[in-house]
Amino acid sequence: MSLSNTRTLMAELRQRMGEDDPMPSRREPQRIPDPPVRVYPKPRRPSRFAKEAAAHTTALVGIGRVGTRYATSVVLQFQAELAVAHSAVATVLPDEWAAENGLLSLNSRVEDHRQFLLRPDLGRRLDEDSLSRLREQATKGVDIQPILADGLSAVACMGSGVALLEHLTAECEQRGWTVGTPMCARFARVWLEDEIGQEVGAKVAVILLGERPGLGTGDGLSAYMVYKPEVGKTDSDRNMISNIHQRGIPPPEAAHRLALMAGAMLEQVTSGVTLDLGPLTTELGDAAGTGLREPQVREPLVFVGEEGEGR
């Protein structure tokens, strides 16, 4: 079929009159939807149990969400706390730190930090030099032998370790017990207390060492106590208190509880699962291993973003 030339003529005229617009007509830009807002889920029926349970944990519950994901502040907080944990694990106790703090310096059979992380068995025995040093310099036949150690967090050991050791020593001397030579073990695992206690002939050995760092708790100490230490004791022979740091159990309070526990061991001539801590429940709290944990408020070690947001 034949079309007339009219449309072409008009298009040329339009161009000649300067009214031509080579661009297609403008379209309104599509409206970009707002990003999802942060939502704190509201249970349809408020659960008293969930509220009660959340009060008894420091776990990250009730942190809200954005869309299907964590809020930025939560992610940043998580990354910051994880970084604290990583750096605590990676920290090595300096060689001369024990001497500088007036402690008898001991070393396990571990040679370097990497080996320490990979070979727990080597961390449970003293090397030859340390053993002879211990035999020469340590007081023998004591009631209680406290041992400070780096464990998995040298940061914690260097932080509140000395304070805890001093408080514990004071608590024990106050009760009229003989306390062993203050010492510090490097690259140490919990079971190292068995060999040391055996060598010094202590009735009770207690090792105060940095605990495995968790989220935002790179500075926590644990104390493991054993009656009549000797190589071959197992974990069922031990009692322990964990979370010893300023936001958990403060060192003076922890020292008091440890002294009570040591007292029970000396009295009952045993430790571990056979030790009856029932009479001390009120003083020891959750360390007695019975009863409900007291409600705790989560106090982060590091703060990220606006303080208090999302908690």
């Binding site: 449309r7 008009m10 005229l13 339009r14 009159m17 009214e19």
Partner: peptide
């Protein structure tokens, strides 16, 4: 824009 077709 002028001289645009007004289609029947």
């Amino acid at each position: 824009m002028i001289l645009e077709p007004l289609l029947p």
